[in-house]
């Protein structure tokens, strides 16, 4: 792995060079009253805080609203028009390691057969520059799902803050090419292996393993424990919307008398309508059964299908849940390791 150093004060120059090379730089900044990834020119607008950016990067690969095609009615006929997708080369700057790992999980869903054309195109144009975590926040639990504040999973370049500079680790060729855009800004450097960096890992409290709990959780499918843990859920859906790996969607038409679109919108398994049949039958008729699906999909079913958990331990769902449901504690409770 190649290692360079980049002076912090030169980040703006690098961003300008990337832009000059036709790339759009997306970094966490304040937008719509939230911290989220937005195309950014001015490095001083970048807002990196400890822990992950509240709104995950997911929206740039899998937008909340995607037009699939449009149509026009014309005298008893209907003309379909394919949706053209415009994508620049994009650089995702200052994702956290959990978010980069989450993109690999989205890849397994959207790039597996049959691949999703919209996702595939955006993904092929994206390079991921991750910033390792020098500090964790109390909701973080990446070590519990086999990741760490310095894991490289999903990253193309990995940055580590050191005083007034970054150590820059070249993880993939795609990442190295970003350095080659303005090689004079990067000096060859030396540094420990990323897992030897002084990360907050030893001090993180939430690291009871949540891997390999699939069978145990599935064995609890009929258990009353779900009533206990699920009945506080309001079904608001914030957990799914802020989750960097949740990917369920709805497909709807929006139209008037002359034309319309068919689009896909983010959806959430906590919503009562999610599984409601037209007949009125609902396989998941209450919040506890919906919450059970959420937990089992992340820690049991996905593991069976794709040999990995569908959780990266970013902690957003716990941090932003209006009733304080904490998936880490709940899985521990379900697997008999905690009585909170």
């Amino acid at each position: 792995m190649k290692i360079w150093t980049l002076q912090k004060k030169r980040v703006g120059d690098w961003m300008a060079a990337l832009r000059a090379a036709g790339k759009e730089v997306l970094a966490p900044c304040e937008a719509d009253g939230l911290l989220r990834f937005r195309p950014i020119d001015d490095p001083s607008a970048i807002a990196v805080r400890p822990g992950p950016c509240p709104f995950p990067f997911k929206e740039w690969l899998f937008p909340p609203h995607q037009v699939l095609f449009s149509y026009q009615f014309e005298g008893g006929k209907v003309n379909l028009r394919e949706e053209e997708v415009l994508v620049n080369d994009q650089v995702g700057l200052f994702l956290r390691p959990c978010d980069a790992a989450a993109i690999k999980i989205l890849d397994t869903v959207f790039l597996s057969d049959p691949p999703d054309g919209f996702y595939q195109l955006r993904r092929s144009h994206l390079t991921i520059v991750t910033l390792g975590c020098r500090q964790a926040v109390p909701s973080c639990f990446c070590p519990a799902v086999g990741l760490s504040p310095t894991s490289l999973e999903g990253s193309d370049l990995f940055l580590w803050e050191e005083d007034d500079r970054f150590l820059v680790y070249g993880v993939s060729e795609k990442g190295d090419r970003l350095v080659q855009v303005s090689p004079d800004l990067f000096e060859p450097g030396e540094g420990p292996e990323p897992d030897q960096l002084p990360s907050p890992l030893p001090f993180m409290e939430r690291k009871e393993p949540l891997t390999n709990v699939g069978q145990k959780l599935q064995g609890l499918f009929e258990s009353d424990l779900w009533q206990e843990v699920g009945r506080t859920c309001l079904g608001c859906g914030i957990c799914a919307y802020l989750c960097p790996t949740c990917h369920c969607f709805d497909i709807v038409d929006e139209s008037d008398a002359y034309s319309g679109i068919r689009c896909r919108n983010w959806d959430c398994c906590a919503f009562p309508l999610f599984t409601l049949h037209a007949s009125g039958h609902n396989p998941r008729p209450d919040q506890p059964s919906r919450y059970r699906q959420r937990v089992l999909h992340k820690f049991a079913y996905f593991l069976q299908t794709f040999q990995q958990n569908m959780c990266v331990g970013c902690g957003r769902c716990s941090l932003f849940c209006p009733v304080g449901m904490d998936i880490y504690q709940i899985v521990l409770q379900l697997t008999g390791r905690c009585l909170v």
Binding site: S112, F249, D250, I251, D267, T275, H297
Partner: peptide, 19 residues
């Protein structure tokens, strides 16, 4: 079986019964 479906392609996460 019937379950509510949207995509038909194994992506949208709606028709799952377990894995």
């Amino acid at each position: 079986m019937e379950n509510k479906m949207k995509c038909g392609l194994g992506k949208c996460g709606r028709c799952n019964i377990g894995p």
